[in-house]
């Protein structure tokens, strides 16, 4: 990294852009909410599969399509579609969040600059 970064305990500056504790905290909280919500869904679904395999006979023993049981179908095919949909929607939402947070950060920045100029 050759960009000059001005750093203090209160802000980080790259070129015209500043991160303050306040903006970063906003970013962090929003990002944490998004990641952990998706994380809960991911672990919920992933651990539900072995749970069903252990405790629900219809899940692992009843054929639904040729030799496919619901269990085999999910582990060999549907789980991957689940991962793709999750990764895609998460990436899109995280990009959108980045975008929104940049605007918030910029707004706070320009407010701080305006305040400094007065």
């Amino acid at each position: 990294m050759s960009e000059k970064a001005a750093v203090s305990g209160k802000f980080v500056q790259f070129g015209d852009h500043i991160d303050t504790l306040e903006t970063v905290d906003t970013v962090f909280r929003a990002q944490r909410k998004l990641s952990f919500t998706y994380g809960a869904v991911f672990f919920g679904v992933t651990l539900a599969i072995p749970a069903l395999s252990v405790w629900v006979p219809a899940w692992y023993s009843t054929p639904i399509w040729g030799g496919f049981t619901a269990n085999y179908f999910v582990v060999s095919l549907a789980y991957f579609v689940f991962l793709w949909v999750m990764a895609w929607t998460y990436s899109k939402q995280a990009d959108k969040l980045d975008e929104e947070l940049m605007h918030i950060a910029e707004a706070i920045e320009s407010k701080a600059k305006a305040g400094g100029a007065q």
Binding site: E3, V12, G15, D16, D19, T20, L21, V24, V27, E106
Partner: peptide, 12 residues
């Protein structure tokens, strides 16, 4: 914390 979660670098 600002380095891990901050976006100034990316905006720049």
């Amino acid at each position: 914390w600002m380095r891990i979660h901050g976006t100034a670098h990316e905006r720049h």
